[in-house]
Design a protein around this nucleic acid. Structure first.
Lengths: 228, 228
DNA sequence: GCAAAAGTGTTATCAATACACCCATGG
DNA sequence: CCATGGGTGTATTGATAACACTTTTGC
Protein backbone atom coordinates (compact mmCIF):
# COMPACT_ATOMS: atom_id res chain seq x y z
CA UNK A 1 0.00 0.00 0.00
CA UNK A 2 1.18 3.46 -0.82
CA UNK A 3 1.79 5.94 1.93
CA UNK A 4 -0.33 9.06 1.65
CA UNK A 5 0.69 11.48 4.38
CA UNK A 6 1.37 15.17 3.86
CA UNK A 7 4.17 16.92 5.66
CA UNK A 8 3.65 20.48 6.82
CA UNK A 9 5.64 22.92 8.89
CA UNK A 10 4.22 25.49 11.27
CA UNK A 11 5.94 28.34 13.04
CA UNK A 12 5.30 29.76 16.47
CA UNK A 13 7.01 33.11 16.41
CA UNK A 14 7.23 35.04 19.64
CA UNK A 15 7.75 38.75 19.91
CA UNK A 16 8.01 40.94 22.97
CA UNK A 17 7.35 44.61 23.56
CA UNK A 18 6.52 46.78 26.56
CA UNK A 19 5.85 43.98 29.00
CA UNK A 20 3.74 42.00 26.57
CA UNK A 21 4.42 38.74 24.78
CA UNK A 22 3.02 38.26 21.29
CA UNK A 23 2.59 35.42 18.82
CA UNK A 24 2.49 35.85 15.08
CA UNK A 25 -0.77 34.57 13.57
CA UNK A 26 -2.42 34.69 10.19
CA UNK A 27 -6.02 34.92 9.18
CA UNK A 28 -7.05 32.20 6.80
CA UNK A 29 -10.11 31.93 4.64
CA UNK A 30 -11.85 28.62 4.88
CA UNK A 31 -14.53 27.78 2.36
CA UNK A 32 -17.02 30.57 1.73
CA UNK A 33 -16.77 33.36 4.27
CA UNK A 34 -15.48 31.76 7.41
CA UNK A 35 -12.12 32.99 8.61
CA UNK A 36 -9.84 31.29 11.08
CA UNK A 37 -6.74 32.31 12.87
CA UNK A 38 -3.87 29.93 12.40
CA UNK A 39 -0.15 29.63 12.76
CA UNK A 40 1.88 30.53 9.70
CA UNK A 41 2.98 27.41 7.88
CA UNK A 42 2.29 25.12 4.98
CA UNK A 43 3.33 22.07 3.06
CA UNK A 44 6.98 21.22 2.59
CA UNK A 45 8.45 21.12 -0.89
CA UNK A 46 9.68 17.78 -2.21
CA UNK A 47 13.28 18.87 -2.25
CA UNK A 48 13.07 21.38 0.53
CA UNK A 49 14.73 20.98 3.94
CA UNK A 50 12.23 21.38 6.76
CA UNK A 51 13.96 24.41 8.18
CA UNK A 52 13.96 26.18 4.85
CA UNK A 53 10.29 25.41 4.42
CA UNK A 54 9.46 27.25 7.63
CA UNK A 55 11.54 30.22 6.65
CA UNK A 56 9.95 30.34 3.22
CA UNK A 57 6.42 30.11 4.59
CA UNK A 58 7.15 32.81 7.13
CA UNK A 59 8.52 35.05 4.44
CA UNK A 60 5.57 34.41 2.14
CA UNK A 61 2.80 34.64 4.67
CA UNK A 62 4.09 37.23 7.07
CA UNK A 63 7.22 38.79 5.58
CA UNK A 64 9.03 38.23 8.87
CA UNK A 65 12.58 37.00 9.31
CA UNK A 66 13.40 35.50 12.66
CA UNK A 67 16.39 35.85 14.99
CA UNK A 68 16.14 32.40 16.47
CA UNK A 69 14.64 29.22 15.06
CA UNK A 70 14.57 25.71 16.43
CA UNK A 71 12.44 22.65 15.97
CA UNK A 72 9.76 22.32 18.60
CA UNK A 73 7.82 19.11 18.11
CA UNK A 74 6.19 17.03 15.43
CA UNK A 75 2.46 16.71 15.74
CA UNK A 76 1.26 13.52 14.17
CA UNK A 77 -0.48 11.44 16.78
CA UNK A 78 -3.90 12.85 16.14
CA UNK A 79 -4.62 11.33 12.75
CA UNK A 80 -7.52 13.69 12.18
CA UNK A 81 -5.86 16.93 13.25
CA UNK A 82 -6.57 18.15 9.75
CA UNK A 83 -10.00 16.90 8.79
CA UNK A 84 -9.30 16.78 5.08
CA UNK A 85 -6.17 14.65 4.86
CA UNK A 86 -3.64 13.01 7.07
CA UNK A 87 -1.14 15.76 7.68
CA UNK A 88 1.71 15.73 10.14
CA UNK A 89 3.16 19.03 11.15
CA UNK A 90 6.70 19.75 12.20
CA UNK A 91 6.36 22.78 14.45
CA UNK A 92 9.14 25.32 14.84
CA UNK A 93 9.77 27.72 17.66
CA UNK A 94 11.04 31.15 16.72
CA UNK A 95 11.91 34.50 18.25
CA UNK A 96 12.15 37.99 16.80
CA UNK A 97 13.25 41.20 18.39
CA UNK A 98 10.85 44.05 18.88
CA UNK A 99 12.05 45.93 15.80
CA UNK A 100 10.20 43.33 13.71
CA UNK A 101 6.91 43.76 15.47
CA UNK A 102 5.60 46.11 12.84
CA UNK A 103 4.99 43.86 9.89
CA UNK A 104 6.04 45.23 6.56
CA UNK A 105 3.13 44.05 4.52
CA UNK A 106 3.69 42.40 1.22
CA UNK A 107 1.12 40.79 -1.02
CA UNK A 108 0.54 37.68 1.02
CA UNK A 109 1.26 39.12 4.41
CA UNK A 110 -1.79 41.29 4.69
CA UNK A 111 -3.51 38.96 7.08
CA UNK A 112 -0.61 38.44 9.45
CA UNK A 113 -0.89 39.94 12.90
CA UNK A 114 0.78 39.95 16.29
CA UNK A 115 -1.61 38.73 18.98
CA UNK A 116 -0.90 38.91 22.66
CA UNK A 117 -0.45 35.44 24.10
CA UNK A 118 -3.19 35.75 26.69
CA UNK A 119 -5.66 36.85 24.03
CA UNK A 120 -5.20 34.08 21.54
CA UNK A 121 -8.53 33.03 19.99
CA UNK A 122 -9.52 29.55 18.91
CA UNK A 123 -7.10 28.55 16.21
CA UNK A 124 -7.39 26.18 13.28
CA UNK A 125 -6.55 22.47 13.65
CA UNK A 126 -4.59 21.71 16.82
CA UNK A 127 -2.76 24.99 16.73
CA UNK A 128 -3.80 26.01 20.23
CA UNK A 129 -2.08 22.89 21.51
CA UNK A 130 1.02 23.75 19.52
CA UNK A 131 1.12 27.28 20.90
CA UNK A 132 0.73 25.87 24.39
CA UNK A 133 3.73 23.64 23.92
CA UNK A 134 5.73 26.53 22.51
CA UNK A 135 4.98 28.68 25.53
CA UNK A 136 6.18 25.91 27.81
CA UNK A 137 9.36 25.65 25.80
CA UNK A 138 9.87 29.39 25.93
CA UNK A 139 9.47 29.47 29.70
CA UNK A 140 11.79 26.55 30.19
CA UNK A 141 14.46 27.76 27.79
CA UNK A 142 14.49 31.23 29.20
CA UNK A 143 15.95 29.81 32.39
CA UNK A 144 18.72 27.70 30.87
CA UNK A 145 19.62 29.44 27.62
CA UNK A 146 20.14 33.13 26.96
CA UNK A 147 17.30 33.41 24.45
CA UNK A 148 15.74 36.41 26.14
CA UNK A 149 18.19 38.56 24.22
CA UNK A 150 16.73 37.43 20.91
CA UNK A 151 13.47 39.05 21.93
CA UNK A 152 15.11 42.40 22.63
CA UNK A 153 16.77 44.93 20.35
CA UNK A 154 20.55 44.92 20.10
CA UNK A 155 20.79 47.67 22.70
CA UNK A 156 18.43 47.25 25.62
CA UNK A 157 17.91 48.52 29.12
CA UNK A 158 18.38 46.32 32.11
CA UNK A 159 14.87 47.10 33.20
CA UNK A 160 13.59 45.76 29.86
CA UNK A 161 15.44 42.49 30.32
CA UNK A 162 14.09 42.25 33.81
CA UNK A 163 10.45 42.85 32.94
CA UNK A 164 10.81 40.44 30.02
CA UNK A 165 11.73 37.70 32.46
CA UNK A 166 8.94 38.72 34.83
CA UNK A 167 6.38 38.79 32.04
CA UNK A 168 7.21 35.47 30.47
CA UNK A 169 7.84 33.55 33.65
CA UNK A 170 4.93 35.26 35.41
CA UNK A 171 7.03 35.80 38.50
CA UNK A 172 8.36 38.63 40.57
CA UNK A 173 12.11 38.98 40.50
CA UNK A 174 14.34 40.89 42.86
CA UNK A 175 15.90 43.62 40.73
CA UNK A 176 19.20 43.66 42.58
CA UNK A 177 19.74 39.91 42.58
CA UNK A 178 18.76 39.64 38.94
CA UNK A 179 21.20 42.30 37.84
CA UNK A 180 23.98 40.84 39.96
CA UNK A 181 23.44 37.38 38.51
CA UNK A 182 23.26 38.47 34.87
CA UNK A 183 26.29 40.72 35.14
CA UNK A 184 28.28 38.01 36.90
CA UNK A 185 28.11 35.90 33.72
CA UNK A 186 30.20 38.46 31.89
CA UNK A 187 28.51 38.40 28.49
CA UNK A 188 26.14 41.29 29.06
CA UNK A 189 28.01 44.50 28.59
CA UNK A 190 27.35 48.08 29.41
CA UNK A 191 27.55 50.44 26.45
CA UNK A 192 28.19 54.16 26.16
CA UNK A 193 24.65 54.77 24.99
CA UNK A 194 22.19 56.29 27.35
CA UNK A 195 18.45 56.23 27.24
CA UNK A 196 16.58 59.34 28.31
CA UNK A 197 12.95 58.89 29.36
CA UNK A 198 10.54 61.68 29.95
CA UNK A 199 10.72 60.79 33.60
CA UNK A 200 13.21 59.14 35.91
CA UNK A 201 16.94 58.77 35.85
CA UNK A 202 18.50 58.04 32.43
CA UNK A 203 19.61 54.44 31.96
CA UNK A 204 22.56 52.84 30.24
CA UNK A 205 21.98 50.57 27.28
CA UNK A 206 23.42 47.07 27.49
CA UNK A 207 24.26 44.52 24.83
CA UNK A 208 24.68 40.77 24.62
CA UNK A 209 28.18 39.71 23.59
CA UNK A 210 27.71 36.56 21.52
CA UNK A 211 31.41 35.85 21.15
CA UNK A 212 32.02 36.01 24.86
CA UNK A 213 29.04 33.75 25.47
CA UNK A 214 30.29 31.17 22.97
CA UNK A 215 33.74 31.32 24.49
CA UNK A 216 32.31 30.67 27.94
CA UNK A 217 30.27 27.78 26.57
CA UNK A 218 33.43 26.13 25.32
CA UNK A 219 35.00 26.54 28.72
CA UNK A 220 32.13 24.51 30.12
CA UNK A 221 29.96 27.38 31.28
CA UNK A 222 26.31 26.58 31.82
CA UNK A 223 23.75 29.39 31.73
CA UNK A 224 21.06 29.17 34.37
CA UNK A 225 18.68 31.54 36.08
CA UNK A 226 16.47 30.40 38.89
CA UNK A 227 13.90 32.09 41.04
CA UNK A 228 12.11 31.26 44.21
CA UNK B 1 2.46 19.94 -7.74
CA UNK B 2 1.89 16.88 -5.62
CA UNK B 3 3.89 16.37 -2.48
CA UNK B 4 5.89 13.16 -2.47
CA UNK B 5 7.58 12.77 0.88
CA UNK B 6 7.58 9.62 2.97
CA UNK B 7 7.25 9.70 6.71
CA UNK B 8 9.20 7.22 8.79
CA UNK B 9 9.76 6.70 12.48
CA UNK B 10 12.95 5.45 14.09
CA UNK B 11 13.58 4.36 17.63
CA UNK B 12 16.66 4.79 19.75
CA UNK B 13 16.19 2.34 22.58
CA UNK B 14 18.64 2.43 25.44
CA UNK B 15 19.31 -0.40 27.82
CA UNK B 16 21.68 -0.60 30.74
CA UNK B 17 23.36 -3.49 32.48
CA UNK B 18 26.45 -3.94 34.62
CA UNK B 19 27.94 -0.54 34.04
CA UNK B 20 27.34 -0.61 30.30
CA UNK B 21 24.93 1.36 28.15
CA UNK B 22 23.44 -0.32 25.10
CA UNK B 23 21.43 0.68 22.04
CA UNK B 24 19.08 -1.61 20.21
CA UNK B 25 20.05 -2.05 16.55
CA UNK B 26 18.93 -4.24 13.68
CA UNK B 27 20.83 -5.76 10.84
CA UNK B 28 19.35 -4.94 7.49
CA UNK B 29 19.99 -6.51 4.13
CA UNK B 30 20.61 -4.02 1.39
CA UNK B 31 20.60 -5.19 -2.20
CA UNK B 32 22.52 -8.41 -2.79
CA UNK B 33 24.67 -9.37 0.15
CA UNK B 34 25.55 -6.16 1.87
CA UNK B 35 24.30 -5.82 5.42
CA UNK B 36 23.99 -2.63 7.41
CA UNK B 37 23.24 -1.86 10.99
CA UNK B 38 20.38 0.52 11.47
CA UNK B 39 17.95 1.78 14.03
CA UNK B 40 14.66 -0.07 14.24
CA UNK B 41 11.94 1.86 12.43
CA UNK B 42 9.96 2.12 9.26
CA UNK B 43 7.22 3.91 7.39
CA UNK B 44 4.16 5.20 9.18
CA UNK B 45 0.75 3.84 8.27
CA UNK B 46 -1.76 6.22 6.70
CA UNK B 47 -4.06 6.10 9.70
CA UNK B 48 -1.46 5.40 12.30
CA UNK B 49 -0.41 7.85 15.01
CA UNK B 50 3.35 8.38 15.03
CA UNK B 51 3.79 6.98 18.50
CA UNK B 52 1.92 3.81 17.62
CA UNK B 53 4.02 3.41 14.52
CA UNK B 54 7.20 3.33 16.60
CA UNK B 55 5.75 0.83 19.00
CA UNK B 56 4.57 -1.38 16.16
CA UNK B 57 7.91 -1.29 14.38
CA UNK B 58 9.73 -2.07 17.59
CA UNK B 59 7.47 -5.00 18.24
CA UNK B 60 7.82 -6.32 14.69
CA UNK B 61 11.52 -5.83 14.27
CA UNK B 62 12.84 -6.47 17.74
CA UNK B 63 9.99 -7.82 19.87
CA UNK B 64 10.83 -5.27 22.54
CA UNK B 65 8.36 -3.23 24.56
CA UNK B 66 9.71 -0.11 26.13
CA UNK B 67 9.27 1.46 29.57
CA UNK B 68 9.66 5.02 28.43
CA UNK B 69 9.04 6.63 25.06
CA UNK B 70 9.23 10.23 23.94
CA UNK B 71 9.72 12.04 20.70
CA UNK B 72 13.32 13.06 20.10
CA UNK B 73 13.61 15.05 16.90
CA UNK B 74 12.46 15.03 13.30
CA UNK B 75 15.23 14.62 10.78
CA UNK B 76 14.29 16.20 7.51
CA UNK B 77 16.81 18.87 6.65
CA UNK B 78 19.10 16.59 4.72
CA UNK B 79 16.95 15.95 1.65
CA UNK B 80 19.12 13.05 0.60
CA UNK B 81 19.43 11.28 3.92
CA UNK B 82 17.83 8.34 2.21
CA UNK B 83 19.30 8.09 -1.27
CA UNK B 84 16.25 6.45 -2.80
CA UNK B 85 13.43 8.85 -1.88
CA UNK B 86 12.77 11.91 0.16
CA UNK B 87 12.09 10.50 3.59
CA UNK B 88 11.74 12.42 6.79
CA UNK B 89 12.15 10.51 10.01
CA UNK B 90 10.54 11.24 13.33
CA UNK B 91 12.98 9.80 15.82
CA UNK B 92 11.87 8.51 19.23
CA UNK B 93 13.88 8.09 22.37
CA UNK B 94 13.12 5.04 24.49
CA UNK B 95 14.30 3.23 27.58
CA UNK B 96 13.94 -0.34 28.74
CA UNK B 97 14.98 -1.96 31.97
CA UNK B 98 17.63 -4.61 32.07
CA UNK B 99 15.12 -7.47 32.19
CA UNK B 100 14.42 -6.77 28.50
CA UNK B 101 18.02 -6.99 27.43
CA UNK B 102 17.70 -10.58 26.34
CA UNK B 103 15.61 -10.33 23.20
CA UNK B 104 12.94 -12.93 22.84
CA UNK B 105 13.36 -13.64 19.20
CA UNK B 106 10.35 -13.81 16.96
CA UNK B 107 10.28 -14.22 13.20
CA UNK B 108 11.36 -10.72 12.31
CA UNK B 109 13.46 -10.01 15.35
CA UNK B 110 16.27 -12.37 14.54
CA UNK B 111 18.58 -9.60 13.47
CA UNK B 112 18.02 -7.32 16.43
CA UNK B 113 20.90 -6.89 18.84
CA UNK B 114 22.01 -4.79 21.79
CA UNK B 115 25.23 -2.95 20.98
CA UNK B 116 27.26 -1.07 23.52
CA UNK B 117 27.15 2.66 22.82
CA UNK B 118 30.88 3.09 22.50
CA UNK B 119 31.05 0.27 19.98
CA UNK B 120 28.44 1.42 17.54
CA UNK B 121 29.49 0.74 13.93
CA UNK B 122 28.66 2.85 10.90
CA UNK B 123 24.92 2.86 10.59
CA UNK B 124 22.60 3.28 7.63
CA UNK B 125 21.42 6.74 6.53
CA UNK B 126 22.04 9.43 9.12
CA UNK B 127 21.42 7.06 12.00
CA UNK B 128 24.74 7.77 13.68
CA UNK B 129 23.71 11.40 13.93
CA UNK B 130 20.38 10.38 15.41
CA UNK B 131 22.04 8.17 18.00
CA UNK B 132 24.35 11.01 18.90
CA UNK B 133 21.44 13.31 19.54
CA UNK B 134 19.71 10.65 21.60
CA UNK B 135 22.77 10.21 23.80
CA UNK B 136 22.86 13.94 24.43
CA UNK B 137 19.20 13.86 25.37
CA UNK B 138 19.77 10.92 27.69
CA UNK B 139 22.61 12.68 29.47
CA UNK B 140 20.66 15.88 29.83
CA UNK B 141 17.43 14.26 30.94
CA UNK B 142 19.12 12.08 33.50
CA UNK B 143 19.94 15.21 35.47
CA UNK B 144 16.51 16.81 35.44
CA UNK B 145 14.07 13.92 35.19
CA UNK B 146 14.09 10.63 37.08
CA UNK B 147 14.45 8.50 33.97
CA UNK B 148 17.35 6.51 35.34
CA UNK B 149 14.84 4.30 37.07
CA UNK B 150 13.36 3.23 33.74
CA UNK B 151 16.71 1.67 32.91
CA UNK B 152 16.77 -0.39 36.09
CA UNK B 153 14.65 -3.29 37.28
CA UNK B 154 11.80 -2.58 39.68
CA UNK B 155 14.01 -3.47 42.63
CA UNK B 156 17.53 -2.19 42.39
CA UNK B 157 20.55 -1.59 44.57
CA UNK B 158 21.73 1.88 45.36
CA UNK B 159 25.11 0.99 43.96
CA UNK B 160 23.46 0.13 40.64
CA UNK B 161 21.74 3.50 40.46
CA UNK B 162 24.99 5.17 41.30
CA UNK B 163 27.10 3.41 38.69
CA UNK B 164 24.34 4.02 36.14
CA UNK B 165 24.73 7.75 36.68
CA UNK B 166 28.50 7.50 36.59
CA UNK B 167 28.46 5.43 33.41
CA UNK B 168 26.05 7.58 31.43
CA UNK B 169 27.34 10.95 32.58
CA UNK B 170 30.94 9.77 32.44
CA UNK B 171 31.67 11.35 35.78
CA UNK B 172 32.75 10.36 39.25
CA UNK B 173 30.14 10.85 41.93
CA UNK B 174 30.58 10.93 45.67
CA UNK B 175 28.69 7.90 46.94
CA UNK B 176 27.57 9.54 50.19
CA UNK B 177 26.36 12.78 48.66
CA UNK B 178 24.55 10.94 45.88
CA UNK B 179 22.68 8.72 48.28
CA UNK B 180 21.82 11.61 50.55
CA UNK B 181 20.46 13.65 47.66
CA UNK B 182 18.37 10.88 46.12
CA UNK B 183 16.91 9.81 49.45
CA UNK B 184 16.11 13.41 50.37
CA UNK B 185 13.63 13.52 47.47
CA UNK B 186 11.49 10.96 49.20
CA UNK B 187 10.38 8.90 46.20
CA UNK B 188 13.07 6.26 46.38
CA UNK B 189 12.15 3.75 49.03
CA UNK B 190 14.00 1.08 50.85
CA UNK B 191 12.37 -2.36 50.61
CA UNK B 192 12.56 -5.46 52.76
CA UNK B 193 14.38 -7.34 50.06
CA UNK B 194 18.05 -7.99 50.46
CA UNK B 195 20.60 -8.86 47.83
CA UNK B 196 23.30 -11.32 48.75
CA UNK B 197 26.44 -11.25 46.65
CA UNK B 198 29.19 -13.81 46.73
CA UNK B 199 31.30 -11.20 48.42
CA UNK B 200 30.73 -8.10 50.51
CA UNK B 201 27.97 -6.96 52.77
CA UNK B 202 24.41 -7.70 51.60
CA UNK B 203 22.56 -4.70 50.23
CA UNK B 204 18.98 -3.56 50.47
CA UNK B 205 16.88 -3.30 47.36
CA UNK B 206 15.23 0.04 46.65
CA UNK B 207 12.28 0.99 44.50
CA UNK B 208 11.01 4.11 42.76
CA UNK B 209 7.61 5.25 44.03
CA UNK B 210 5.86 6.71 40.99
CA UNK B 211 2.84 7.95 42.92
CA UNK B 212 4.94 9.83 45.40
CA UNK B 213 6.95 11.35 42.59
CA UNK B 214 3.83 12.52 40.77
CA UNK B 215 2.44 13.94 43.97
CA UNK B 216 5.62 15.90 44.55
CA UNK B 217 5.50 17.14 40.97
CA UNK B 218 2.07 18.59 41.58
CA UNK B 219 3.35 20.33 44.66
CA UNK B 220 5.87 22.09 42.47
CA UNK B 221 8.82 19.80 43.08
CA UNK B 222 11.56 19.92 40.49
CA UNK B 223 13.93 16.98 40.15
CA UNK B 224 17.54 17.88 39.63
CA UNK B 225 20.90 16.26 40.15
CA UNK B 226 24.09 18.13 39.56
CA UNK B 227 27.72 17.28 39.89
CA UNK B 228 30.90 19.22 39.99
C1' DG C 1 11.30 69.81 45.53
C1' DC C 2 8.76 66.03 43.96
C1' DA C 3 7.82 62.12 41.10
C1' DA C 4 9.83 58.40 38.59
C1' DA C 5 13.00 55.04 37.32
C1' DA C 6 18.11 53.67 37.85
C1' DG C 7 21.64 52.10 40.44
C1' DT C 8 23.96 49.79 44.33
C1' DG C 9 25.85 46.19 49.21
C1' DT C 10 25.31 43.41 53.15
C1' DT C 11 23.59 39.80 55.88
C1' DA C 12 21.29 35.38 56.64
C1' DT C 13 20.10 31.07 55.14
C1' DC C 14 20.39 26.95 52.68
C1' DA C 15 22.51 23.69 49.54
C1' DA C 16 26.46 21.57 47.57
C1' DT C 17 30.98 19.75 48.44
C1' DA C 18 34.70 17.35 50.41
C1' DC C 19 36.09 13.85 53.08
C1' DA C 20 37.07 8.62 56.07
C1' DC C 21 35.71 5.18 58.95
C1' DC C 22 32.85 1.19 60.47
C1' DC C 23 29.71 -2.80 59.14
C1' DA C 24 28.13 -7.32 57.43
C1' DT C 25 29.00 -11.11 54.89
C1' DG C 26 31.63 -15.21 52.42
C1' DG C 27 35.50 -17.72 52.01
C1' DC D 1 41.00 -12.78 59.65
C1' DC D 2 40.84 -10.84 55.30
C1' DA D 3 38.75 -9.21 51.17
C1' DT D 4 34.76 -7.04 49.29
C1' DG D 5 31.17 -4.00 48.78
C1' DG D 6 27.45 -1.55 51.89
C1' DG D 7 26.30 1.97 54.91
C1' DT D 8 26.76 6.43 57.44
C1' DG D 9 27.97 12.03 59.56
C1' DT D 10 30.20 16.43 59.85
C1' DA D 11 32.54 20.61 58.73
C1' DT D 12 33.45 23.91 55.05
C1' DT D 13 32.29 26.54 51.31
C1' DG D 14 29.68 28.81 48.04
C1' DA D 15 25.32 30.25 46.18
C1' DT D 16 20.83 31.97 46.67
C1' DA D 17 17.48 34.95 49.00
C1' DA D 18 15.94 38.77 51.48
C1' DC D 19 16.04 43.39 52.05
C1' DA D 20 16.11 49.64 51.52
C1' DC D 21 18.31 53.66 50.51
C1' DT D 22 20.66 56.94 47.29
C1' DT D 23 21.10 58.97 42.55
C1' DT D 24 19.76 61.36 38.40
C1' DT D 25 16.76 63.41 35.57
C1' DG D 26 12.22 66.19 33.95
C1' DC D 27 8.68 68.92 35.31
Amino acid sequence: MIQNIRVAVDAIVFGYQNGKLYVLLIQQKFGTNETYWALPGGLVGNDEPLKEAVQRELKEETNVEVNYLEQLYTFGDDVYRDTRNRVISVAYFALVDSSKLSIKANTDAEHAQWIEVNQIPNLAFDHNKIVQKAIERLKAKLTYQPIGFDLLPKYFLFSELETLYCTILEKEIDRRNFRKKILSFGFVEETEKISVHNTGRPAKFFQFNTQKYNQLLQEGFHFEIKFA
